[in-house]
Computed example of a mutant assay.
Amino acid sequence: MSTERPTFACIVDPLPYEEKLDARPLAQIDLVVIHCTELPDLAMAREYGERILHASGTGNSGHYYIDRDGSVHVYVRPDRVAHHVRGYNPRSVGIELVNTGRYPDWLAVGSQKMEQPYPDAQIDALKALLEHLRQELPALRYIAGHEELDTAREPASDDPDVSVPRKMDPGPLFPWDAVLRATPLERLVPDHPV
């Protein structure tokens, strides 16, 4: 009987600027942050990830993207620090689930509902990815949603007198109970969210 772990199936398609992102030891990673793309499809998520936004020649992106069909795509390998959550990037891996979220009017008063459910294939792939990461990242202990770590509010895009959450992902339809039952990772509750 073989004692080798099965190979985790994913599509490795690094962003063009991946090598410009800060390198880090895998032992530094103790947190997984769950996001949703708040975009209609994987192609648009890739387009947004490729945008250069920082003086370093890099942009904002998660490490892993899981499409609705359960396919897993690696845009930034874990040994690089990706820009995906304010204040937690050096210690975390970002997993983006393709989901429309509040697109296209993210910060408009009338767009503050997230009503698209996450397909079973996508959640099953997430559970498998979390297990894979637990095997690959020796210090991995915590899991959190983006909305729990970035609690900032901003003026609504259509009414500056109203403030709306900057981030709401993965949102109210994300099946936290099912995901937490499938992993021993602990839910991180920050003392001082950003």
Rank of each mutant, 00 (worst) to 15 (best):
M1G: 11
T3P: 08
R5F: 00
P6Y: 04
F8P: 00
I11W: 01
V12K: 13
D13G: 03
Y17A: 07
K20F: 04
L26V: 08
I29E: 06
V33Y: 00
I34A: 11
I34L: 15
H35T: 01
H35L: 15
C36R: 10
C36Y: 03
C36A: 13
E38W: 11
D41C: 14
D41E: 13
L42C: 02
L42M: 06
A45S: 12
E47N: 09
Y48G: 04
G49T: 02
E50D: 14
E50T: 09
E50V: 09
R51I: 07
H54P: 05
H54L: 14
G57E: 08
N60K: 12
S61A: 15
S61E: 06
G62F: 04
H63Y: 05
H63W: 08
Y64M: 07
D67E: 09
D69V: 03
G70W: 02
V72H: 00
H73K: 10
H73T: 04
V76M: 12
V76G: 12
P78M: 14
D79N: 14
R80Q: 12
A82Y: 09
H84N: 10
R86A: 14
G87V: 02
G87I: 03
P90R: 12
P90K: 11
P90V: 05
R91A: 10
G94N: 08
G94C: 08
I95E: 07
I95M: 11
I95K: 13
L97A: 10
D105H: 10
A108V: 02
V109G: 07
V109I: 04
G110Q: 10
S111F: 03
S111D: 09
K113P: 00
K113N: 13
E115D: 15
E115A: 14
P119R: 11
D120S: 12
Q122Y: 00
Q122S: 01
D124I: 07
A125Y: 00
L126G: 03
L126D: 02
L130Q: 06
H132T: 03
L133R: 14
L140N: 05
R141Q: 07
A144P: 01
H146N: 12
E148F: 03
L149F: 02
L149I: 01
R153F: 04
P155Y: 01
P155L: 02
A156M: 08
A156H: 05
D158S: 04
D158N: 10
P160I: 11
P160M: 10
V162F: 02
V162N: 05
V162M: 07
V162D: 06
V164S: 05
P165I: 08
R166M: 14
D169E: 15
P170E: 07
F174E: 02
F174P: 03
W176M: 08
A178M: 05
V179T: 00
L180C: 02
R181E: 04
A182C: 06
T183G: 11
L185H: 03
L185N: 09
V189M: 13
P190D: 07
P190T: 06
D191Q: 15
D191Y: 06
